[in-house]
Structures are given as structure tokens and as C-alpha cells.
Design a binder for these strands. Structure first.
Lengths: 199, 199
DNA sequence: TCGTTAAGCGTGCGGTGTACGCCTACGACG
DNA sequence: CGTCGTAGGCGTACACCGCACGCTTAACGA
């Protein structure tokens, strides 16, 4: 048929991601992406029905970089590695984190990842409701911890003011101590893994 | 002094929240809030420097409804109740959840809540890094689980399609099983509490 | 009563997403 | 090789957004 598309969805997503990485999330407009690609704004709508669909494409591009193959290791370490890979992939594009969180459930890449985690769980005695609870706990921790790392409150600008406030002595002390805790993400993940193992 | 303000910040936030609850998050515009209050659009800027500040006000209004007094109970149940109260307050305004997550770190109400949780932890042997890790794990789980409940992927429309896909047999089975698991939030929370206790 | 001060708001600007319809490059076919 | 149908590309336009600016006006202290 006539006039083949000149863009793959990946190329479109890559252009959008480049805009976000360079100029921040508010700069992600249809016009900006079109300019990035050297096309007219409305041309993008040949590839995407609305802007949110473009955003979902960006998210899937980010998440598709994670290797879903579990490493050779004890099962808990297998899961820890898989979780950390997603954390790292998301953290590689800090301006896009809000996007990643709001569109993650439409990403086939995250679906493949979940399937991989479930395989590890299934191979190690997790069945039925217990497996459901385990995946939910892992996903919840992952999603929450990523946002915590990048939007406070233990390390945010907004909380800095609150933590300095004498009204919150424990919060202030905890925020101070948090800065010297190495890899809090990993230690929190171990909490979840330990809790899962003993259900 | 002349001409006292006719609005409290709470009244402003309440009007904005009414708009969001009634018409959804995209309908939250300065013009809509002004109309809700029967004022001119620009009048709002006497109370707020920019729109995000109004959003933060809404979030704090939502979170200020949670009782931060721990109940009489064993300490793990105390924490479970505190966490569940935040979950319920947030879930009461589903259209505002994205807002709540992005502005939570600027909410004094969540600061008071954190302080309260830390008091329970401190009174039960949690100190130093261990207390930091415990709070982070709880907050991460809370934040992530709330989003999981309201944006899939175990119960979302987007994932329904993915779960139906034969490419993801375990995910499909898990999504099916998830629907019959009573109070997955509570069971996931118990995973975290158990993991915390044994660090 | 009057002056001062801040509340309230009308106008306008630069930006957004996207509906609509035209133009045109291309691949298939006679 | 010409021609035609199709779908890619895009220019224009519209409704809406956040908000800068400066005027009008209500309420208090003196």
C-alpha cells in the first residue's frame, strides 16, 4: 500500500523521551516532540490517538530495557535482582518517573517482568492467594519506594523544612539518620522478602 | 487592617476538592474553582501563588482527616490501624489519588502522621537505622499499594487485556485469583510488619 | 469623614491538545 | 510507463489553560 510510515513507535517514543530527559516533563508537548522529529505537530496523530498514548509509549520504552531473565542465584536473590533492575531503569529517567508510575499498568514490558517474577515464585512453593499477596507486596514496595526516593519525604526539599521543625522531633532525627543509611532501597526490600518467606 | 480575607485556606481547598470529586481531576482548573466559589479567577491568587500550591492544599485537606492517635492495642496492630486510616482517607477521593501521591511530601498532616508512627516504633525498640528502614518500608508499601489498588495492574482495565493474553499465563491466573483474595491490602501490610519485626 | 490598604477581578498573552480537511508522495496495477 | 487510490503529512483554527498586570472597590483606623 502507498506511503509507508516513516516512524516506528519506538522512534516516536525515543524522541519524546529525549525531550523529557533534556527539558523536563512539563516540556513534553506534542509540538515539542514534533519539532524534535522535524515533522508537523499533527503528523504525530497518525501514530497515536492522544497524548496519553504517547506517554504510555515512553513508559514502555523505559521499562523494556529491563532484563527479565532471573540470574543464577537463590530465589530471594533472584527476585531482589529483578526488582532492582526495574528500580534502576526507572531511576535512569528521573524526569519521567511520574509518567512511569501513572502508565505502568499499560506497559507490556512490565507484564513480561511480572510474569518472570511469578515464575520464580511459582518455582519456590508460592501458589494461590499466597502468590497473589507476594506479588502485590513486591509491586507495592517497588512502586512506593521509587517514588519515595525521588519525591521525599525522607529526602525531599519540602520535608527538609518540616524536618527542621521542632514540632516533629522524631521525624527530624529520622530524616537526618536516613542520609547515612546505605542503600535503604535494598534494606526495605529485604524486609518485604523476609515477610513473604514466613507467611 | 482593611478588607479581611473572605476565604480560609480550608474553604479554598474544600471547593477545589468538590470540583475534583464531582468532575474528575482534569476538570480542576483555576477557573472551575473560582466558579465553584462564585469569585473571579484571579482572586484565587490572593490565597495561592500557583496552581500546584492549591493542589497541595487539597492534599493536605484530605490527609488532615486521618486520626493520628494510635489505638490501644499491641504495637503492630497500632501501626496497622494508622496505615489503614491513611489508606481509607486517600481512597475516599479516588479522583485525587494522583494528586495525593505527588504532593504528599508537602503535607503537614502526613508529617504529623509520620511522627506518630515513629513514636510507636521508638516505644518498641526501633532506633537508628532500623527505625529509618521500618518507616521507609511502611511508607513505600502504603504509597505503592494505594496506587496498585486504583491503577491496576492486578485489577485495572489495561491489565485485563494483558491478563487475558495467553502470553502471560501466570499473570492471568494471578489476576483471576486476586479478585477473590479478601483485603489484599491488609495481608500485604502484614508481610511488611512481619519482615520489620525480625530484622 | 476620609485616607490607606489589601481584596477582588477584567483583560490579555502565550501556551496547550486536538478536530478538520487539504495536499501529496508513494506502491500497485493496467 | 502512466495513472490512480490510498494513506501519510500537515496548516489552520478553536476552546481551554495558567497566570502577569493593573484597575476598582470594600472595609477598617484615625
Amino acid at each position: 500500500m502507498p506511503r509507508p510510515k516513516s516512524l516506528t513507535p519506538e522512534a516516536l517514543a525515543a524522541a519524546a523521551l529525549a525531550v523529557v530527559d533534556r527539558d523536563g516533563l512539563p516540556a513534553l508537548s506534542m509540538r515539542a516532540v514534533a519539532t524534535e522529529l522535524g515533522m508537523g505537530t499533527m503528523s504525530l496523530y497518525r501514530y497515536v490517538r492522544e497524548k496519553t498514548e504517547l506517554e504510555a509509549l515512553v513508559v514502555d520504552l523505559i521499562l523494556s530495557t529491563v532484563d527479565t531473565q532471573p540470574p543464577e542465584a537463590p530465589w530471594r536473590e533472584q527476585i531482589a535482582v529483578l526488582v532492582r533492575r526495574v528500580r534502576d531503569a526507572v531511576a535512569a529517567h528521573p524526569h519521567a518517573i511520574v509518567l512511569t508510575m501513572t502508565h505502568r499498568h499499560r506497559s507490556p514490558a512490565l507484564g513480561r517482568w511480572s510474569e518472570s517474577v511469578l515464575e520464580v515464585l511459582a518455582a519456590n512453593g508460592f501458589t494461590g492467594a499466597r502468590r497473589v499477596v507476594a506479588l502485590r507486596a513486591l509491586l507495592s514496595y517497588l512502586i512506593g519506594a521509587v517514588q519515595l526516593e525521588h519525591l521525599g519525604p525522607l529526602t525531599g526539599t519540602g520535608t527538609a523544612a518540616m524536618a527542621a521543625n521542632a514540632e516533629f522531633p522524631l521525624l527530624a532525627e529520622t530524616a537526618r539518620a536516613a542520609r547515612s543509611v546505605d542503600d535503604g532501597f535494598q534494606r526495605g526490600l529485604e524486609v518485604v522478602l523476609r515477610g513473604m518467606s514466613e507467611e
